[in-house]
Design a protein around this nucleic acid. Structure first.
Length: 287
DNA sequence: GCCCAGGAGTGTG
DNA sequence: CACACTCATGGG
C-alpha cells in the first residue's frame, strides 16, 4: 500500500452509472453523491466523473492501481469507432448515442470465471451478495473488512463448512470442481486460443455452458466478438429483431449482424432491456 | 407466499 | 438437433 493520493484517469466517454451499474461487474456500489466505490485487484477505488475522465480516490491502492483501472475500464477502446460500426444497424443506431459512455469492463480472467459461474440462475443483487460473501470468507483483506477476490489457491483451501456458509446453493459444487480441475496456469494458456477454441475449453469446466463461456470470453478475456445470451437478451432479440430459438441460432444471428464488436452490441442491448424493465425506458427503435 | 433469476447438467424423443 | 426436467436459494 502506498500513501493515498487522488489521481486522475483520462477516459472518454464514460458513464459510471451505465458501466458499473448495468450488471456486467458485481463489486461496485453507488455512493449517495453519484460516485462509485469498488474493488479492482488489491485496490479499493472511489471513482467520480470529472472533465475528460475520472477522479480516482484510492481508499486503499496497490502500486499498480492506475494501470489496473485503465485495463479494467478498457480505456484504450475507441468507442467512436465501435459506435460507427454498430451505428449502421438501424435498431441500435439512435440508442447507442444516448449511452455512449457505457463501456465494457475487462475483469481478471479468474475472477470473471468464478463470478459468472456463481451468476447462473440468480438475480444481480444476489450475485453481488454471493461474490461479496466469497471474497469476505476467502480473499485477502485489503482494508476495513473489504476483501480482494480470492485466487484459486485461496478457494482450494476453503473448508466445506465455510463454503456452505456463503449461500451459493448448487453452485458451490461447480466452484469446487473448477478449483480441482483447473491447472494453475490454465487460464493464462487459454489467452492464446482463438475465440472458438477458448469457448470450447471453458465449457469443459463444470458450471460453464454457452452463456457463461461467452461472458468469460467477453468480460474476462476481452474477446469483443463474444455475445452472451441470457434471458434478458432473448427478450431483447425477440422484441427488437423478431428472432427466437436456440443459443446457437441466436448466436449466429448476432455474429452476422454485429460482427467483431458484438460484445458492445450485447451490452448496449442488455443495458436497454434492463432499464426498460426497471424504469420503463426504451432507447432503441423497433424495426 | 409467490415469482423469478446474466443457466447448466442430464436424460429423452 | 430440440425439448423437459431438476438443481438450491434469496431478493423483489
Amino acid at each position: 500500500m502506498r500513501a493515498k493520493s487522488i489521481f486522475r484517469l483520462r477516459v472518454e466517454p464514460i458513464d459510471l452509472d451505465a458501466t458499473l451499474g448495468c450488471g456486467q461487474a458485481f463489486r461496485w456500489r453507488r455512493d449517495p453523491d453519484g460516485s462509485w466505490t469498488g474493488v479492482v485487484g488489491h485496490s479499493i477505488l472511489r471513482l467520480s466523473a470529472s472533465r475528460g475522465g475520472l477522479t480516482v480516490d484510492p481508499i486503499a491502492a496497490s502500486p499498480c492501481a492506475k494501470k489496473d483501472l485503465s485495463t479494467y475500464l478498457r480505456v484504450s477502446d475507441d468507442i467512436a469507432s465501435v459506435q460507427r460500426s454498430l451505428g449502421r444497424d438501424g435498431v441500435l443506431s439512435r440508442g447507442i448515442l444516448q449511452v455512449s459512455g457505457l463501456r465494457l469492463v475487462k475483469m481478471d480472467e479468474w475472477e470473471c470465471l468464478i463470478s459468472y459461474v456463481l451468476a447462473t440462475y440468480a438475480n444481480i443483487p444476489r450475485i453481488k451478495a454471493m461474490i461479496d460473501s466469497v471474497a469476505t470468507a476467502f480473499g485477502d483483506e485489503i482494508l476495513d473488512g473489504v476483501h480482494a477476490f480470492p485466487n484459486i489457491n485461496d478457494l482450494r483451501e476453503a473448508s466445506t463448512e465455510d463454503l456452505n456458509r456463503c449461500g451459493l446453493g448448487y453452485r458451490a459444487v461447480y466452484l469446487r470442481s473448477i478449483c480441482e480441475v483447473l491447472e494453475p496456469r490454465g487460464l493464462d494458456r487459454m489467452k492464446r486460443l482463438s475465440y472458438a477454441d477458448l469457448r470450447d475449453e471453458l465449457k469443459e469446466l463444470s458450471g460453464v455452458g454457452d452463456k457463461v463461456a461467452d461472458c468469460v470470453a467477453l468480460f474476462g478475456f476481452g474477446r469483443l466478438e463474444a455475445f452472451p445470451i441470457d434471458v434478458w437478451m432473448k427478450r431483447a432479440l425477440s422484441r427488437l429483431y423478431g428472432v427466437t430459438g436456440s443459443y446457437a441460432k441466436l448466436s449466429e444471428f448476432a455474429r452476422l449482424r454485429f460482427g467483431c464488436f458484438a460484445g458492445y452490441a450485447q451490452e448496449y442491448m442488455f443495458y436497454n432491456e434492463r432499464s426498460l424493465a426497471t424504469a420503463g425506458r426504451c432507447i432503441f427503435s423497433e424495426e
